[in-house]
Amino acid sequence: MTGMRPVIAGTTMPILEITLDPGESVVAEGGDVAWLSPGMQLDTSTAHGSGGQGGFMSSLKRVLGGGQLFLTRYTAPAGGLVAFAAQLPGTIREVQIDPADNFMIQSGSYTASTPDVEVSVALQKKLGAGIFGGAGVVFQKLSGNGTAWVQLAGEITEYELAAGQSLLIHPGHLAMFRAEMPLEFASIKGIKNKFFGDSLFLAELHGPGHVWLQSMNAAKLAAAIEPYLPQQSGDKN
Protein backbone atom coordinates (compact mmCIF):
# COMPACT_ATOMS: atom_id res chain seq x y z
CA MET A 1 0.00 0.00 0.00
CA THR A 2 1.48 3.29 -1.08
CA GLY A 3 -0.83 5.55 0.92
CA MET A 4 -2.72 8.72 0.13
CA ARG A 5 -1.37 10.64 -2.87
CA PRO A 6 -2.32 14.34 -3.08
CA VAL A 7 -1.58 16.39 -6.20
CA ILE A 8 -2.01 20.16 -6.46
CA ALA A 9 -2.41 21.03 -10.14
CA GLY A 10 -3.00 24.22 -12.09
CA THR A 11 -1.89 27.81 -11.76
CA THR A 12 -4.34 30.67 -11.11
CA MET A 13 -7.28 28.47 -10.02
CA PRO A 14 -5.63 25.27 -8.77
CA ILE A 15 -7.18 21.88 -8.10
CA LEU A 16 -6.43 19.57 -5.17
CA GLU A 17 -6.76 15.95 -6.32
CA ILE A 18 -6.35 13.27 -3.63
CA THR A 19 -5.96 9.62 -4.64
CA LEU A 20 -6.98 7.26 -1.84
CA ASP A 21 -5.97 3.64 -1.31
CA PRO A 22 -8.67 1.15 -0.29
CA GLY A 23 -10.16 2.14 3.08
CA GLU A 24 -8.53 5.58 3.24
CA SER A 25 -10.55 8.73 4.02
CA VAL A 26 -10.34 12.49 3.71
CA VAL A 27 -12.57 15.15 5.33
CA ALA A 28 -13.83 18.36 3.68
CA GLU A 29 -16.74 20.80 3.64
CA GLY A 30 -19.34 18.90 1.65
CA GLY A 31 -20.20 21.46 -1.00
CA ASP A 32 -16.60 22.01 -2.01
CA VAL A 33 -16.09 18.74 -3.91
CA ALA A 34 -15.43 19.19 -7.64
CA TRP A 35 -15.35 15.55 -8.83
CA LEU A 36 -14.82 12.06 -7.40
CA SER A 37 -14.65 8.39 -8.35
CA PRO A 38 -17.81 6.26 -8.45
CA GLY A 39 -18.24 4.09 -5.37
CA MET A 40 -16.86 6.67 -2.95
CA GLN A 41 -18.70 6.51 0.39
CA LEU A 42 -19.84 9.89 1.74
CA ASP A 43 -20.66 10.37 5.41
CA THR A 44 -21.74 13.83 6.61
CA SER A 45 -21.57 14.42 10.37
CA THR A 46 -20.84 17.01 13.07
CA ALA A 47 -18.13 14.67 14.40
CA HIS A 48 -15.83 15.06 11.38
CA GLY A 49 -13.10 17.68 11.66
CA SER A 50 -12.88 17.15 15.42
CA GLY A 51 -9.47 15.50 15.47
CA GLY A 52 -10.95 12.09 16.08
CA GLN A 53 -12.56 13.29 19.32
CA GLY A 54 -16.06 13.87 17.95
CA GLY A 55 -18.63 15.76 19.97
CA PHE A 56 -21.24 18.38 19.18
CA MET A 57 -19.36 21.13 21.08
CA SER A 58 -16.35 20.74 18.79
CA SER A 59 -18.59 21.25 15.78
CA LEU A 60 -20.13 24.36 17.37
CA LYS A 61 -16.65 25.79 17.84
CA ARG A 62 -16.03 25.18 14.14
CA VAL A 63 -19.16 27.14 13.24
CA LEU A 64 -18.03 30.04 15.44
CA GLY A 65 -14.83 30.02 13.41
CA GLY A 66 -16.75 30.56 10.19
CA GLY A 67 -16.92 26.95 9.08
CA GLN A 68 -19.75 24.50 8.54
CA LEU A 69 -21.52 22.58 11.28
CA PHE A 70 -21.36 19.40 9.18
CA LEU A 71 -18.27 18.13 7.37
CA THR A 72 -18.20 15.25 4.89
CA ARG A 73 -15.89 12.27 5.14
CA TYR A 74 -15.00 10.71 1.77
CA THR A 75 -13.94 7.05 2.06
CA ALA A 76 -12.74 4.89 -0.83
CA PRO A 77 -13.62 1.21 -0.10
CA ALA A 78 -11.79 0.04 -3.22
CA GLY A 79 -9.60 3.10 -3.83
CA GLY A 80 -10.38 6.18 -5.87
CA LEU A 81 -9.94 9.92 -6.09
CA VAL A 82 -11.69 13.06 -4.91
CA ALA A 83 -10.90 16.58 -6.13
CA PHE A 84 -11.51 20.08 -4.76
CA ALA A 85 -11.28 23.34 -6.70
CA ALA A 86 -9.99 26.68 -5.41
CA GLN A 87 -12.73 29.26 -4.85
CA LEU A 88 -10.54 32.32 -5.51
CA PRO A 89 -7.46 32.90 -7.69
CA GLY A 90 -4.44 31.90 -5.64
CA THR A 91 -2.74 28.77 -4.36
CA ILE A 92 -3.48 25.62 -2.38
CA ARG A 93 -0.89 24.75 0.27
CA GLU A 94 -0.33 21.50 2.15
CA VAL A 95 0.51 21.79 5.87
CA GLN A 96 1.54 19.08 8.31
CA ILE A 97 -0.27 19.21 11.66
CA ASP A 98 0.96 17.74 14.96
CA PRO A 99 1.04 18.89 18.62
CA ALA A 100 4.06 21.11 17.85
CA ASP A 101 2.66 22.45 14.58
CA ASN A 102 -0.75 24.13 14.90
CA PHE A 103 -1.87 26.85 12.50
CA MET A 104 -4.40 29.67 12.34
CA ILE A 105 -6.07 30.19 8.97
CA GLN A 106 -8.53 32.79 7.75
CA SER A 107 -12.13 31.60 7.53
CA GLY A 108 -12.86 30.15 4.10
CA SER A 109 -9.30 28.89 3.61
CA TYR A 110 -9.88 25.34 4.85
CA THR A 111 -10.16 22.89 1.95
CA ALA A 112 -9.65 19.35 3.27
CA SER A 113 -7.74 17.30 5.82
CA THR A 114 -7.01 13.80 7.01
CA PRO A 115 -9.46 12.51 9.65
CA ASP A 116 -7.36 13.24 12.75
CA VAL A 117 -7.00 16.98 12.06
CA GLU A 118 -9.25 19.20 14.19
CA VAL A 119 -10.83 22.31 12.63
CA SER A 120 -12.08 24.71 15.30
CA VAL A 121 -12.58 28.37 16.21
CA ALA A 122 -9.46 30.44 16.94
CA LEU A 123 -10.00 32.04 20.34
CA GLN A 124 -8.11 35.22 21.15
CA LYS A 125 -8.02 36.44 24.74
CA LYS A 126 -8.72 40.08 23.94
CA LEU A 127 -11.54 39.29 21.51
CA GLY A 128 -13.06 36.23 23.18
CA ALA A 129 -15.45 35.08 20.46
CA GLY A 130 -12.84 34.88 17.72
CA ILE A 131 -14.54 37.53 15.57
CA PHE A 132 -11.74 39.91 14.79
CA GLY A 133 -12.48 43.55 14.04
CA GLY A 134 -15.46 45.50 12.84
CA ALA A 135 -15.12 44.01 9.37
CA GLY A 136 -15.78 40.53 10.81
CA VAL A 137 -12.44 38.83 10.09
CA VAL A 138 -12.54 35.31 11.55
CA PHE A 139 -9.84 32.67 11.93
CA GLN A 140 -9.95 28.91 12.39
CA LYS A 141 -7.39 26.70 14.12
CA LEU A 142 -5.90 23.52 12.64
CA SER A 143 -4.66 21.12 15.32
CA GLY A 144 -4.45 17.39 16.03
CA ASN A 145 -2.34 15.09 13.85
CA GLY A 146 -2.26 14.71 10.08
CA THR A 147 -2.28 16.74 6.89
CA ALA A 148 -4.46 19.69 5.90
CA TRP A 149 -4.83 21.63 2.67
CA VAL A 150 -5.68 25.33 2.68
CA GLN A 151 -6.55 27.91 0.01
CA LEU A 152 -4.61 31.17 0.04
CA ALA A 153 -5.83 34.02 -2.19
CA GLY A 154 -3.69 35.84 -4.74
CA GLU A 155 0.09 35.90 -4.43
CA ILE A 156 1.68 34.77 -1.16
CA THR A 157 4.44 36.53 0.77
CA GLU A 158 6.02 34.76 3.74
CA TYR A 159 7.89 36.21 6.72
CA GLU A 160 9.78 34.55 9.54
CA LEU A 161 9.46 36.85 12.55
CA ALA A 162 12.10 36.60 15.25
CA ALA A 163 11.41 36.99 18.95
CA GLY A 164 10.71 40.68 19.63
CA GLN A 165 9.69 41.37 16.04
CA SER A 166 6.13 42.21 15.00
CA LEU A 167 4.27 43.15 11.83
CA LEU A 168 1.18 45.31 11.32
CA ILE A 169 -1.17 43.64 8.81
CA HIS A 170 -4.54 44.47 7.30
CA PRO A 171 -6.69 41.58 8.65
CA GLY A 172 -7.91 40.59 5.20
CA HIS A 173 -4.35 39.92 4.05
CA LEU A 174 -3.42 37.74 7.04
CA ALA A 175 -3.88 34.29 5.49
CA MET A 176 -2.14 31.89 7.87
CA PHE A 177 0.26 31.92 10.82
CA ARG A 178 1.60 29.58 13.47
CA ALA A 179 -0.92 29.25 16.30
CA GLU A 180 1.52 30.08 19.11
CA MET A 181 2.17 33.61 17.76
CA PRO A 182 0.44 36.35 19.82
CA LEU A 183 -2.05 38.39 17.83
CA GLU A 184 -3.49 41.79 18.79
CA PHE A 185 -5.73 44.29 17.03
CA ALA A 186 -5.62 48.07 17.16
CA SER A 187 -6.89 51.15 15.36
CA ILE A 188 -4.05 53.11 13.74
CA LYS A 189 -4.72 56.85 13.61
CA GLY A 190 -3.98 59.02 10.60
CA ILE A 191 -5.55 56.97 7.78
CA LYS A 192 -9.13 57.52 6.68
CA ASN A 193 -11.06 54.27 6.59
CA LYS A 194 -14.69 53.72 5.58
CA PHE A 195 -15.31 51.31 8.48
CA PHE A 196 -13.52 53.16 11.29
CA GLY A 197 -13.57 56.86 10.34
CA ASP A 198 -10.17 58.49 10.85
CA SER A 199 -8.33 55.30 11.82
CA LEU A 200 -7.29 52.04 10.13
CA PHE A 201 -7.91 48.75 11.93
CA LEU A 202 -4.84 46.49 11.71
CA ALA A 203 -3.65 43.21 13.18
CA GLU A 204 -0.30 43.13 14.95
CA LEU A 205 1.35 39.71 14.85
CA HIS A 206 4.29 39.03 17.17
CA GLY A 207 7.22 36.66 16.66
CA PRO A 208 8.76 34.24 16.90
CA GLY A 209 7.02 32.33 14.13
CA HIS A 210 6.10 32.11 10.47
CA VAL A 211 3.32 34.05 8.71
CA TRP A 212 1.76 33.76 5.25
CA LEU A 213 0.25 36.94 3.77
CA GLN A 214 -2.10 36.99 0.77
CA SER A 215 -2.34 39.76 -1.83
CA MET A 216 -6.07 39.21 -2.40
CA ASN A 217 -9.06 38.78 -0.14
CA ALA A 218 -12.71 38.09 -0.88
CA ALA A 219 -13.96 41.47 0.39
CA LYS A 220 -11.63 43.47 -1.85
CA LEU A 221 -12.39 41.26 -4.85
CA ALA A 222 -16.12 41.79 -4.32
CA ALA A 223 -15.62 45.56 -4.00
CA ALA A 224 -13.58 45.62 -7.22
CA ILE A 225 -16.26 43.92 -9.33
CA GLU A 226 -19.29 45.57 -7.69
CA PRO A 227 -19.36 48.58 -10.08
CA TYR A 228 -19.67 46.20 -13.04
CA LEU A 229 -22.59 44.16 -11.69
CA PRO A 230 -26.13 44.85 -12.95
CA GLN A 231 -27.98 47.19 -10.60
CA GLN A 232 -31.47 46.24 -9.47
CA SER A 233 -34.04 48.95 -10.05
CA GLY A 234 -36.96 49.67 -7.79
CA ASP A 235 -39.04 50.68 -10.81
CA LYS A 236 -40.65 47.52 -12.21
CA ASN A 237 -41.67 49.42 -15.31
Score class of each variant (00 low, 15 high):
142 L>W: 00
142 L>E: 03
142 L>M: 02
143 S>R: 02
143 S>D: 12
143 S>C: 09
144 G>M: 04
144 G>E: 03
144 G>R: 01
144 G>C: 05
145 N>A: 09
146 G>T: 06
146 G>L: 02
147 T>W: 01
147 T>C: 05
148 A>H: 01
148 A>P: 05
148 A>S: 07
148 A>L: 04
148 A>D: 04
149 W>C: 03
149 W>E: 04
150 V>N: 00
150 V>T: 01
150 V>M: 00
151 Q>N: 09
152 L>Y: 01
152 L>I: 15
152 L>W: 01
152 L>S: 02
152 L>E: 08
153 A>F: 02
154 G>L: 03
154 G>C: 03
155 E>G: 15
155 E>T: 13
155 E>I: 06
156 I>E: 09
157 T>W: 09
157 T>M: 13
158 E>W: 01
158 E>G: 06
158 E>L: 10
160 E>Q: 13
160 E>K: 11
161 L>G: 13
161 L>R: 09
161 L>T: 05
161 L>H: 10
161 L>E: 11
162 A>S: 14
162 A>K: 14
162 A>R: 13
162 A>E: 15
163 A>G: 11
163 A>F: 05
163 A>L: 11
164 G>M: 06
165 Q>L: 04
165 Q>M: 08
165 Q>K: 02
166 S>M: 08
166 S>C: 09
166 S>W: 02
167 L>P: 06
167 L>W: 08
168 L>M: 13
168 L>D: 15
168 L>Q: 11
169 I>Q: 05
169 I>W: 00
169 I>V: 13
169 I>M: 06
169 I>D: 07
169 I>F: 03
169 I>A: 03
170 H>D: 15
170 H>Q: 14
170 H>K: 12
170 H>T: 15
170 H>A: 14
170 H>P: 13
171 P>E: 08
171 P>W: 03
171 P>K: 07
172 G>H: 02
172 G>M: 09
172 G>P: 11
172 G>S: 07
173 H>C: 04
173 H>R: 10
173 H>Q: 13
174 L>V: 12
174 L>A: 06
175 A>W: 00
175 A>Y: 04
175 A>T: 08
176 M>E: 05
177 F>Y: 14
